[in-house]
């Protein structure tokens, strides 16, 4: 294997994505799982000189003794400490003088990131540590059976925000503004991405690696059982969420420049929510309310007002 120089060139088409798989098949991941697909893309982008840190969740159950799908060093510690485990790995690599040519990437769920692991993540970013932190975001605590997290979208049905006679809307909370938060915290690079847009994600990962400091990417990963969608439809639904404006693709560099990396077609949110069970309880009035929120947010973005948006 040797000390292969990291190839961090940006790509234009899907054909330029490296063919080599650093995550094999054979895991217990659900058919059509976008989170395990995300690990493949992550390691294709960053290459063999990468150590991957996992937090407790669905991806932990991809490596069940004696099987492992990972062809790079991979470690699971606990749920809230992906960032701090990575901080320690960086310390160890520095002590051994191996830190220069090694990527450390945390691949953590949204519950482990937005909620229980936020303190460790904030500490890692404030210490300016060269670590790439990926939040694979399905907007729920997926592995425990789809409970609300701080990344759950407004109006979603989860097992802890079920719609009922007295509370019809499902989740009443707004999603935490974590990408902006990480920029303000001091991240060298922060971005959103979606598994439905792999070229965009791979380029963002490579920009993150080149940023030389703490980098944060919030990666939308549609969840087959959690969202109640067809196995074959994960990426399609991700694409619709992006094109409806519900999941904008953007990045913020160290200087604070906001760059929209994909211009959405702005299809109706109703269309994006259509084949997802988590939104089936919403009536047309409630969907209109969500459409209005999205429209208002995009008006702000178009006028350069990303910093005053509430959801993104």
């Amino acid at each position: 294997m040797g000390n292969v120089k990291n190839n961090l060139k940006e790509i234009k088409t899907i054909k330029e994505i490296p063919e080599e798989e650093l995550v094999t098949g054979g895991t217990f991941a659900c058919g059509g799982c976008n989170a395990i697909y995300g690990t493949r893309l992550t390691l294709k982008a960053l290459g063999k000189n990468t150590i991957m840190v996992n937090t407790s969740g669905c991806m932990t159950l991809t490596a069940i003794y004696p099987f492992t799908p990972y062809k790079v060093p991979w470690v699971h510690n606990a749920i809230e400490n992906g960032a701090s485990t990575a901080s320690g790995i960086l310390m160890g690599l520095k002590a051994l003088k191996k830190d220069k040519n090694t990527n450390i990437v945390v691949y953590a769920g949204d519950g482990a990131t937005y909620d229980i692991g936020l303190q460790a993540l904030s500490g890692m970013v404030s210490r300016n540590e060269k670590i790439i932190y990926i939040c694979y975001n399905n907007g729920t605590f997926g592995n425990t059976g789809f409970q609300k997290s701080a990344a759950t979208p407004y109006g979603a049905n989860t097992t802890t925000t079920p719609p009922g006679k007295k509370s019809e809307i499902g989740n009443i909370f707004k999603r935490k503004n974590i990408v902006k938060m990480m920029h303000i915290n001091g991240a060298a690079y922060s971005a959103t991405a979606s598994t439905s847009h792999p070229v965009d994600y791979i380029n963002k990962l490579r920009r993150a690696a080149k940023s030389g400091g703490p980098a944060f990417i919030d990666l939308l990963c549609p969840c087959i059982p959690g969202w109640g969608i067809e196995e074959s439809q994960g990426s399609r639904i991700g694409e619709k969420l992006v094109e409806s404006g519900m999941w904008p693709l953007y990045e913020i560099n160290k200087k604070g420049e906001f760059i929209l990396t994909h211009k959405p077609k702005m299809i109706p949110v109703k269309e994006a929510m259509k084949n997802q069970k988590r939104f089936q309880h919403l009536d047309s009035k409630q969907i209109k309310e969500i459409q209005k929120i999205i429209n208002t947010e995009w008006e702000k973005i178009k006028k350069g007002g990303i910093w005053t948006t509430e959801f993104y």
Binding site: N81, S84, S87, G88, I89, M91, Q119, A120, S122, G123
Partner: peptide, 28 residues
């Protein structure tokens, strides 16, 4: 000269980092 020193933001993070560091093979 050969010690990497890092003050983290909680004991929970310290012990998590200690594990990460020890897992690289560095004496921690």
């Amino acid at each position: 000269k050969n010690l990497v020193f890092n003050e983290l933001e909680s004991e929970h993070s310290v012990i998590s980092a200690a594990l990460g560091s020890q897992m690289t093979g560095a004496r921690t």
